[in-house]
Amino acid sequence: MFQSIGIPGLIIILIITLIVFGPRKLPEIGAAFGKTLSEFKKSATGIMNSDEPEVHAKKKTSEDIQAVTEPMEK
């Protein structure tokens, strides 16, 4: 998919992104993009390993319980 872009295309995309968002927003956008990719990878790995019984027998932690109850409190 990205094989036809090449180095000049990537440089143009980077320059346009820098002009549109500015140098102050780029680190925030990069961090958000990285978190999104890591969450996607974690979910995809979980789906691929869903045949294993450990995934189904996962114990609920206090964070899981808190994440479920917070929307109810608001």
Rank of each mutant, 00 (worst) to 15 (best):
F21Y: 11
G9R: 06
I47A: 08
L26F: 10
M48G: 07
E63T: 09
D51K: 08
I11L: 15
G9N: 00
S50D: 12
P53A: 04
L14A: 15
L10A: 15
I19G: 01
I15C: 11
S38Q: 03
F33K: 07
P8H: 08
L26A: 13
I7S: 01
F21T: 12
I5Q: 05
L26R: 10
D51N: 07
I47V: 09
E39G: 07
P27R: 13
E54H: 05
G9V: 05
I13K: 14
M48V: 01
F2R: 10
T69V: 15
G22D: 13
G6Q: 00
K35D: 11
H56V: 13
D64A: 05
T61C: 09
I12M: 15
I13G: 10
G46F: 02
S62M: 08
I5H: 03
P53K: 10
L18Q: 04
E28P: 07
G22N: 07
V55T: 06
A44D: 07
G6K: 12
E73H: 02
K59Q: 09
K60L: 14
P27A: 15
L10R: 15
E28N: 08
R24I: 14
K60D: 01
E52R: 06
E54Y: 15
E28T: 15
I47L: 15
Q66Y: 08
P27V: 14
F33R: 01
K35T: 14
I13W: 01
A44H: 08
M1F: 13
F2S: 02
F21C: 12
P27H: 12
I5E: 00
Q3I: 15
I19R: 06
I15P: 08
P53D: 01
V68G: 02
S38Y: 03
V55E: 07
I11D: 00
V20P: 00
S62C: 13
L18T: 11
A31D: 13
K25D: 00
K41M: 06
K35N: 12
K74Y: 02
K58W: 05
T61R: 02
K74D: 10
P27D: 05
Q66C: 10
I5C: 02
S4T: 00
S38K: 13
L18H: 06
S43T: 02
K58I: 13
Q3M: 13
I15F: 14
